[in-house]
Amino acid sequence: MFEATFNQASILKQVLEATKDLVNDANWDCSAEGIALQAMDSSHVSLVSLSLRGDELASYRCENQISLGINMNTMTKILKCAENNDRTIIRADDDADVMVFVFESEGRDKTSKYEMKLMDIDSEHLGIPEQEYSATVQMSSKEFSRIVRDLSTIGENVEITVDKEGITFGAKGESGSGTVSLKSNPSVDEGSSNITIDLTDSVKLNFALRYLTFFTKAAPLSDNVSLSLSADVPLMVEYAIGDVGFIRYYLAPKIDD
């Protein structure tokens, strides 16, 4: 028996918004520790990894490890039937072929119950090696979304450069080019770009903006985002989900032909 209670539906709604454009179907792997999801997009360029700790949820139980095969679009639609503040319970019996959703209104005067059919999903699980990154940049998630959106109007790719001066995002297209630079300066006043850079080596890498745009759908989950880069390895983009867990995205770099 698996059962997880969220004080508000909004976390689950935001998690689904942050994953459904990359992944159609995914196994939600539930264990005594919590809920984990790992899935690649269909072109095998990016990967999303979600972790929610059971002991940080309103309540959680999972006696036997269980993989719940979920169509992300269907789950998104069912969660739209909940108000953001509804207490939300998701439940599945061992060997069940459905997941049950219960939404309770704030005043506890309305209860809705939905059942969603589960799927058998053959998923490939990738081992992600522990990586010491050359540069880790913490910045406002809103600012990151803005930069990705702005540079997407110029080109398909972004070149990210991190050095001791700061981080620069650059895009080139048929009609022109653009760059956005953020300075790393811990002594500046509050209200400035509020960016911290942990740097051991300068890096310069190219990435497809199309995928970064999908990643920025996670911005409502966290005020901050962390970008971790090393030469010739996938970029890691992480959004913390309060104390409950995180959503991490990995994106393979582009290489010059």
Partner: peptide, 14 residues
């Protein structure tokens, strides 16, 4: 133009 790498070149199937 840069060519897109495949993620599976970096991560191994487990």
């Amino acid at each position: 133009t840069p060519v897109q790498n495949d993620l599976q070149e970096f991560f191994t199937l487990v």
